[in-house]
Design a protein around this nucleic acid. Structure first.
Length: 691
DNA sequence: GCGATCACTTAGGAGGTTCTAT
DNA sequence: ATAGAACCTCCTAAGTGATCGC
């Protein structure tokens, strides 16, 4: 695969290396902290012939980053100031357009394509943005009116029937209601891989025991002696029964769900009825972290109204808490977009109820995001020149920043914020890469200065890539890795905050994640240009679109698990290929035979036969080649997820413009939900739209 | 100035529904 | 008609990055 000028192999082993690394890590961390404690004299770091000093570190237990060298103020940057001016001069788009887009409101659609595709777009975080906003809102104000019903609470626990029993040490044991409920969480997951993991089992058992009555605690002492089999079977059967329900029954269930959706699923925001994204509280259960999560199996508690903060407007009808309950708090904060929130008990973080992506609020935000990315297009060359210069900086901090930015730009890596130790799976992004995550090869497979990346990123998805980098990058990496343990940070003087502050100076609104958006969208646009053949039929053009989409998904390392039946269907295809190969071989022999015969006889009929056999061979070979391509295609696609980039990284206006240009119905690319989310783009982008 | 907190986007999997090939 | 593939919706975890408050 060389779509993007570098080769990347997506490897299916997602968890490789985790246990290995986490083991070394803790010991090295300790060592690192000891080292830092003793570091009360300024440390002298050498970059080539120059010396500079680093302040003693003040690192404390939890975070692993040493404190940063004090940052020198940069001189006012040319790009940044000129851009700010440009943006200040620009006229963004007011909300009038939006009101036209929202079909249900019956307003006349705005067919002002030129206006809509003007390069300025909405003002992003600029002072004075309200100047061109029709609905004048003060800085940070997100709405003037917000009314809703509050979250829908999942139904209470339904006890098991008498004849479904839990067994301990082979004997039936009647559990208290609370204990039984938690037991069912585990029982339901029995056929899941999670329950075979020791961490999961331990966390579950620990939390379960905490909720038991003292009598139960007295009896239930080992998970191994617990038999959830009967409970498990009960739920499997219940599930089957539900699937086998007659049509009318299913219809009835659906109507009930629709009623709840209708009642709780919408809110009124500034006079418009908007769909809510997640209007139900999360049900209790066992925490399912991704990858080697230290908290997997812990008990996720039931959310009660007393846990929930309601946010709405003062003069709205304030939602009623369920009978006999009250809210934790009701507040009227119009500088945030959430309708309700609660603190989740596993990681102690906030969860929110927010609007659906189809809402105006979310849509505008999405639009803004792409406008920022488009502005990056104008300055990206300057920024690239800048980081190339910084590779030679005498400050190691700047060098690290420049190399990291190169990776973020070239490979679309995530920023890589610091994470709290032991609270989550051990995953990294660019700034948090450790020495153990890369290998340097001065020469590899005929390429020079190859960096081999192998690490677990977001959601513990493995990133594996071999990239030929520019020589100064390679040299810098050697320098950064010198005298370091595998478990130490590669960019030990760099933080995402430092990097983002730098980026903010280069362009207003620029942060590390913008590079991902920018590179994804520009890649789609370029690939579409390169791959689309106007002569193709719709199917052919759609294939080109999917290929362009796939190029982006590969760039962003968007993976999916291999479909369960993949191996089987692949095998079927392989058998077909093998059969075809045999046919080809036979045809080859036939040709040879015919040729021999012709040599002997020099007879016209024999000559004709040779031609005939050759033709057959050619056709068979073509068929074989086609099947091989199909197999490759299938193989490559088996673990690539196209949806994530489509939904989050690709400026929908590129797609809309392409569809218009080539007469492709938009429904062939975007399904209903996606069309709702991208309503703004579908309405405003003409066929000439350029990202 | 820095860790903690907060708000919001980005992510893959589960499980249901629809489409397609046989 | 049916099985399995493909698609879609929902769910919530896991990121990013700004702001808060000491």
């Amino acid at each position: 695969m060389t779509i993007l000028g570098f080769s990347q192999k997506i490897v299916d082993d997602r968890t490789m290396g985790v246990s290995k690394t986490s083991e070394v890590k803790s010991s090295s961390r300790k060592r690192k902290n000891d080292l830092e404690k003793g570091r009360d004299k300024p440390e002298v770091l050498l970059v080539k012939e120059l010396e500079y000093t680093v302040k003693p570190s003040t690192v404390k237990g939890k975070k692993k980053k040493p404190s940063k060298v004090k940052e020198k103020p940069l001189q006012e940057n040319v790009i940044s100031s000129s851009l700010k001016q440009e943006a200040a001069d620009g006229k963004g788009l007011g909300s009038s357009l939006w009101n036209g887009i929202q079909a249900e409101e019956g307003a006349a659609p705005a067919s002002e394509e030129t206006k809509a595709t003007s390069p300025q777009g909405p003002a992003v975080g600029l002072e004075g943005s309200s100047r061109w906003e029709e609905e004048k809102k003060e800085d940070g104000v997100k709405w003037m009116q917000l009314e809703h019903r509050g979250p829908y609470f999942v139904p209470p626990y339904e006890p098991l029937p008498e004849d479904v029993q839990f067994y301990y040490d082979g004997k039936p044991l009647k559990l208290s209601l609370a204990t039984e409920e938690i037991a069912t969480f585990y029982a339901k997951m029995l056929n899941h891989e999670y329950t075979t993991k020791e961490i999961f089992q331990n966390n579950f058992f620990h939390d379960w025991r905490k909720e038991m009555t003292s009598e139960e605690q007295e009896i239930i002492k080992e998970l191994d002696k617990c038999d959830f089999g009967e409970i498990h079977r009960y739920f499997v059967e219940k599930n089957e029964a539900r699937k086998g329900l007659p049509k009318e029954e299913k219809q009835k269930l659906k109507e009930e769900a629709d009623k709840i959706q209708e009642e709780y699923g919408y809110c009124i925001l500034d006079g418009h009825r908007e769909k809510i994204g997640n209007f139900k509280t999360e049900p209790p259960g066992l925490f399912r972290g991704r990858g080697e999560h230290p908290k997997m199996g812990m008990l996720k508690k039931r959310i009660m109204p007393e846990d929930v903060i309601i946010n709405c407007s003062k003069d709205s009808k304030i939602p009623e808490p369920p009978e006999g309950h009250k809210w934790k708090e009701v507040r009227f904060d119009n500088t945030v977009t959430w309708l309700a929130s609660w603190t989740e008990n596993i990681q102690n973080t906030l969860k929110y109820i927010m609007l659906n992506p189809s809402s105006k609020l979310k849509g505008e935000k999405d639009w803004e995001k792409y406008e920022v990315a488009r502005r990056l297009k104008d300055v990206v060359h300057t920024i690239r020149a800048q980081y190339r210069k910084d590779w030679k900086s005498k400050e190691i901090k700047k060098r690290q920043r420049a190399v990291a930015l190169y990776f973020i730009d070239k490979l679309a890596l995530r920023a890589g914020n610091e994470k709290e130790e032991g609270e989550t799976a051990d995953t990294v992004g660019c700034c948090s890469l450790r020495v153990e995550h890369i290998q340097l090869h001065p020469q590899l497979d005929g390429q020079e200065h190859v960096v081999e990346f192998d690490f677990l990123g977001k959601d513990s998805i493995r990133y594996y890539n071999k990239v030929s980098v520019e020589k100064p990058v390679f040299k810098n990496l050697q320098l950064f890795m010198k005298n370091k343990d595998p478990t130490e940070d590669l960019f030990d003087h760099l933080s995402t905050t430092f990097l983002n502050k730098h980026l903010q100076r280069l362009m207003d609104g620029l942060t590390a994640k913008v590079f991902r958006t920018y590179n994804a969208s520009i890649t789609l646009q370029e690939q579409l240009k390169a791959l689309t053949n106007p002569e193709d039929n719709i199917a052919g053009k759609l294939l080109s679109y999917n290929r362009a989409n796939r190029a982006v998904a590969i760039l962003c390392n968007h993976q999916r698990s291999i479909p369960k039946t993949f191996a089987k269907s692949m095998q079927v295809l392989q058998e077909k290929i093998d059969a075809k190969k045999k046919q080809v071989e036979e045809a080859q022999e036939e040709v040879k035979k015919a040729e021999d015969e012709f040599k002997d006889t020099k007879d016209a009929k024999a000559e004709l036969n040779v031609e005939k056999k050759k033709k057959l061979l050619k056709r068979l070979e073509e068929q074989l080649a086609k099947m091989n391509i199909q197999a490759t295609d299938k193989e490559e696609n088996k673990q690539i997820a196209l949806g994530t980039s489509k939904l989050n990284y690709l400026d929908p206006r590129i797609t809309v413009a392409w569809c218009k240009k080539f007469g492709i119905p938009i429904e062939r690319i975007y399904n209903k939900t996606q069309r709702e989310k991208f309503a703004w783009a579908i309405d405003m982008a003409g066929e000439d739209f350029e990202f």
